[in-house]
Design a protein around this nucleic acid. Structure first.
Lengths: 216, 216
DNA sequence: AGCAGGAATCGTACATGTACGATGATTTTT
DNA sequence: AAAAATCATCGTACATGTACGATTCCTGCT
């Protein structure tokens, strides 16, 4: 029965990994984001520092695991947040997304502001978009708007454009907390409304099908 | 004559500082961005590693100095790039800005994607905006559009919104080079045209005058 | 049971950013 | 000119991320 053994090992590994993630989470809560170091983390779970690298490629990998946990709850909160009007539903996403980013800047940074050099492991165009649970919900709700005749055009393109606007807004607010954007909430709402109003007036063509860009 | 002595010292310091910046620049060109280390840099100019800290607060400060040099040339290139139509002039800015960001992702990152915690040293609302030479040009050209009746509303607010859209677009392209945005150029143009077309149809109120936000 | 091969764990070592404080030079004050 | 204060420079030391290779342990086969 090699398979069950295999899975047993896998289980064990997964358990230790989640133990590490838990410890990392606590460490961050107790000592702040920069208090998370490999050595402290290893000591916390009773392993040697180098053993951590059996479970994570590098430190970024740990931060990313933490951040993804946080984003999971965000995705859930969004899904649990209903709205009758489909456009309002989009606004809910944008608002929750913004609130999360401004409330968890570290997590937002690691997920959306540090380079992802993961090559597309056989992922297709659409898979890469819907792989992200947030993007998945966004596309779905955009589709609802299109179906309701409130928006017109390619849902994926519309979703991507909304993402760009939302991300630009939030990342600027995070990076330049002292820049006079005025009230953060007001700025977020303004940008969100601006983008949605503009999209409502035009027919959005799909994104070009050019091969994936690669920085040389 | 304490003043002249003072200035002599200042001159000396400035000279050494620019020497350090030059050396850093060469190091980056020769060995890439991650090849720039304090020790190598110090050795290059014949100083002890710790002496570098008399001229820069930390490593980020060095990277920032490098990046600002690069942005200086961008600002100049934009100013030298004329356009008859005021809206076209705005598009030129957006295009050059995007080209720069995509062509110099490291510099773009350090300037626009790493937290700036500099408190506003007595700077006023407007000074903080026009302090950035890029934002200055942008506001000027937006003002030209408003004067020509091609846009309507508060120039600073419009400029900030354009910045948010442009930044969102570029930073996403930089951070997720493998995400299927399609052709990068096409995506940039699309977002730029989208924002400008949308702004042309509405009267943009000024940003709220709320006190500078501060993350607690 | 014994053994070979792979996997998990870890000890050591290195490069790095940078804090701290010493030391010598330079400027200012007396 | 002598003393005091300021400042540039640097030696040392520490915490950190992580590469490399040894070592221990487990697994499946004979």
């Amino acid at each position: 029965m090699p398979l069950s053994v295999q899975t047993r090992r896998e289980k064990q590994k997964a358990k230790l990994r989640s133990e590490l993630v838990d410890a990392a989470h606590k460490l961050v809560q107790e000592e702040g984001y920069e208090g998370l170091t490999i050595r402290k983390l290893a000591k916390r779970v009773g392993y040697a520092p180098m053993s951590v690298y059996s479970y994570f490629a590098d430190k970024q990998d740990i931060l990313f695991a933490l951040a993804e946990d946080a984003f999971q709850t965000l995705a859930k909160r969004i899904k649990d947040h209903p709205a009758d009007d489909p456009i309002e539903a989009l606004k809910v996403i944008m608002a929750e997304y913004a609130a999360f980013g401004l409330g968890n800047p570290n997590e937002y940074r690691t997920v959306f502001m540090t380079e992802r050099v993961k090559p597309p492991e056989g992922k297709t165009f659409a898979e890469m978009q819907e792989g992200n649970p947030l993007m998945k919900v966004l596309i779905e709700r955009v589709e609802a708007c299109v179906a309701a005749g409130r928006l017109k055009g390619d849902p994926r393109a519309i979703a991507t454009m909304l993402w760009a606007v939302g991300h630009g807004t939030i990342s600027l607010l995070i990076t330049f907390p002292f820049y006079p954007f005025g009230d953060q909430q007001a700025f977020v709402t303004r940008m969100c409304d601006f983008a949605l109003a503009a999209l409502a007036t035009q027919d959005v063509p799909p994104l070009s099908e050019a091969p994936v860009n690669c920085c040389p």
